[in-house]
Deep mutational scan, measured.
Amino acid sequence: HNLTITQGKLFFHYNPKLCLSEIHKMEEVSGTKGRQERNDIALKTNGDQASCENELLKFSYIRTSFDKILLRWEPYWPPDFRDLLGFMLFYKEAPYQNVTEFDGQDACGSNSWTVVDIDPPLRSNDPKSQNHPGWLMRGLKPWTQYAIFVKTLVTFSDERRTYGAKSDIIYVQTDATNPSVPLDPISVSNSSSQIILKWKPPSDPNGNITHYLVFWERQAEDSELFELDYCLKGLKLPSRTWSPPFESEDSQKHNQSEYEDSAGECCSCPKTDSQILKELEESSFRKTFEDYLHNVVFVPRKTSSGTGAEDPRPSRKRRSLGDVGNVTVAVPTVAAFPNTSSTSVPTSPEEHRPFEKVVNKESLVISGLRHFTGYRIELQACNQDTPEERCSVAAYVSARTMPEAKADDIVGPVTHEIFENNVVHLMWQEPKEPNGLIVLYEVSYRRYGDEELHLCVSRKHFALERGCRLRGLSPGNYSVRIRATSLAGNGSWTEPTYFYVTDYLDVPSNIA
């Protein structure tokens, strides 16, 4: 807008934040220059609390790290170098490059900038070799853009010569660093050979998330399962459950009422301010606690030095998902009996873990797994792929695949051998790939016309006998059925096997 004052003059007093240069501009645009008398524009009460600059400061050096910015700028000295009290560095987070010096300023003089007072450097006698002032900004957020400017702080001049310097606002972004852990990993099994893994992005990506790394490792069953005799009275049979499938998407929606109208769909109840505040506090606490764990609990591995020492970490090797089922080394339970199943799973520490690289999504279907087997899954978020990966501390989750139908069934015939004193040795093959492992066998036998009897055969007993022995049988026709019990439950009964026990007292003698 054009402003013209045809008559009258300007009068400025007691404006401590208004620089004289701005008042002189007002004289020019209003056409009143030359009308004012000496005392109409006070030299001592206008701009006496402001830094009124008329020179431009330029930054000469900028260096960044993930949490620091090192700045240096060209030296500046007023005509009387004693008038320079120091520099004021202003900075704040700036997602967009549209910041002005006066953003967030209120009537009390406060604003949204963080201000650092910096002492002037030592003055050199040689004007050509003056030290460049600077400042190291610490405690910054990774991968965050900051708006920065600097200006001088000078003393009051009796001659009211307006001098000083100020830089333009520059924008500097800190470097990326390792992201925080992925949030809320959930693993479920939808079949006997697959596990579905879902997660949420890290709360602090500290860069642009480029991919996720998912490692999985087959877990050995508890050692007590191999040692305890679950045929003993009072000892509860062990059981394991597989990871249940995901709930429906509708039930997972946030901010939804727990109660549904019987007449149909209901609208979600909005969260109160107290609920939102509580969630923010919980989120802040979780982030602080995660940072504490990362800094205190997890110790970084030592990389190899120039002395030739090897990095103890196993090298990563990509495998196809079809090879995942046989990740671990199978060892027989008892070496003397080769027909026992290889369900003991000690994992070799030198073995390469299978892994998958996930790009542009937060889910993965891990296939080719062994049925009813526990897996430990390790999830890392990465925001750099080359020249070397920059990934987060791992988040861990466990899951067990679903049982395989008929995996616990005894394959092959049940054979028998009759000894003296009416002892019958029953023999059968253990299931080759049971659900988890076989903890015991149930032997059901009966003599024709009598009630059915049951015998429990422990895992250890089966390994020693290759089956079991029935003792003290009365003469007669017998039928026997056997079924295995694994961590997933009972298998199917075998087809009945028949044998006849004679009275050993009636056996004919070869003595003449």
Rank of each mutant, 00 (worst) to 15 (best):
P205W: 04
G207Q: 01
N208P: 10
N208H: 05
I209E: 08
T210H: 13
H211G: 08
H211W: 11
H211P: 01
L213S: 15
V214H: 00
F215A: 15
W216R: 08
W216T: 05
E217C: 13
E217Q: 15
R218K: 08
Q219C: 04
A220I: 10
E221A: 01
D222Y: 12
D222N: 13
S223R: 08
E224P: 14
E224I: 04
L225M: 11
E227W: 09
L228N: 08
Y230M: 05
Y230F: 07
C231V: 03
C231I: 02
K233N: 14
G234R: 12
L235H: 11
K236D: 10
L237H: 02
L237D: 12
P238F: 11
S239G: 03
R240T: 13
R240P: 14
T241G: 11
T241W: 03
T241F: 14
W242G: 13
W242F: 06
P244T: 07
P245T: 13
F246D: 08
S248Q: 15
E249V: 11
D250S: 11
S251V: 10
Q252D: 15
N255R: 12
Q256H: 10
S257I: 04
S257L: 11
S257P: 13
E260P: 12
D261P: 12
G264V: 12
E265D: 14
C266V: 13
P270W: 07
P270E: 04
P270I: 10
K271G: 07
K271C: 14
T272K: 02
D273V: 07
S274V: 07
S274K: 07
Q275T: 11
I276V: 07
K278N: 10
E279T: 11
E281F: 14
S283E: 14
F285M: 15
F285E: 15
R286G: 03
K287P: 11
K287A: 05
E290Q: 14
E290R: 11
E290D: 11
Y292A: 08
L293V: 05
L293C: 05
H294S: 03
V297P: 06
V297H: 13
V297D: 10
F298D: 10
F298S: 07
F298G: 05
R301K: 10
K302H: 14
T303V: 06
T303S: 08
S305I: 05
G306A: 06
G306R: 14
T307Y: 12
D311N: 12
D311G: 11
P312G: 14
S315H: 10
S315G: 13
K317Y: 09
K317I: 09
K317D: 13
K317V: 10
R318S: 11
R318D: 13
R318H: 12
R319V: 08
S320I: 11
G322C: 09
V324D: 05
V324A: 12
V327I: 05
V329Y: 11
V331D: 13
V331L: 12
V331M: 09
P332S: 13
T333A: 15
T333F: 11
V334L: 12
V334Q: 06
A335Q: 07
P338V: 09
N339K: 10
T340K: 13
T340Q: 05
S341G: 08
S344P: 10
S344V: 08
P349C: 12
P349D: 15
E351V: 09
E351L: 15
P354A: 08
E356I: 12
V359N: 09
N360M: 10
N360F: 08
K361C: 09
K361W: 06
E362N: 07
V365R: 11
I366L: 12
I366S: 01
I366Q: 01
S367C: 12
G368F: 07
R370V: 11
H371W: 08
F372V: 01
F372Q: 03
T373C: 02
Y375T: 02
I377E: 00
I377S: 02
E378L: 04
C382Q: 00
N383Y: 04
Q384I: 06
D385L: 08
D385Y: 08
T386H: 07
T386W: 14
T386K: 06
P387S: 07
P387T: 14
E388P: 09
E389I: 06
R390K: 11
S392E: 05
A394E: 07
A395I: 06
A395Y: 08
Y396I: 04
Y396V: 03
Y396T: 13
R400H: 14
M402S: 15
M402F: 14
P403M: 07
A405E: 12
A405T: 13
K406Q: 13
A407S: 10
D408V: 01
D409L: 13
V414Q: 02
H416N: 06
F419S: 08
E420V: 05
E420G: 04
E420N: 09
N421M: 13
V423P: 02
M427F: 13
M427C: 02
M427Q: 02
Q429K: 10
P431M: 02
K432V: 06
K432D: 13
E433F: 15
P434G: 04
N435S: 03
N435Q: 01
I438C: 04
V439Q: 08
V439I: 08
Y441A: 01
E442F: 12
V443M: 05
S444Y: 14
R447L: 11
R447H: 05
G449C: 05
E452Y: 15
H454W: 04
L455Y: 11
C456A: 02
C456Y: 02
C456Q: 02
V457Q: 05
V457S: 02
S458C: 14
S458K: 14
S458T: 13
R459H: 15
R459G: 07
R459P: 05
K460D: 05
H461T: 09
F462H: 13
F462W: 13
A463Q: 09
L464V: 10
R466A: 05
R466W: 03
R469W: 09
L470T: 02
G472P: 06
G472S: 08
G472C: 03
G472V: 07
L473S: 01
S474W: 09
S474R: 04
P475N: 08
N477W: 04
N477M: 06
N477I: 05
S479Y: 03
R481F: 03
I482F: 02
R483V: 01
R483P: 00
T485E: 15
T485F: 05
S486L: 01
L487S: 14
L487F: 10
A488Y: 15
N490L: 07
G491W: 00
G491V: 01
G491F: 02
S492M: 11
W493P: 01
T494K: 02
T494G: 00
T494I: 03
E495R: 09
E495M: 03
P496Y: 13
P496K: 13
P496Q: 03
P496C: 15
T497R: 14
T497N: 07
Y498P: 04
Y498N: 07
F499N: 00
Y500F: 03
Y500N: 14
Y500L: 11
V501P: 01
T502Y: 02
D503A: 05
L505T: 09
L505S: 09
L505K: 09
V507N: 15
S509F: 11
S509Y: 11
A512T: 02
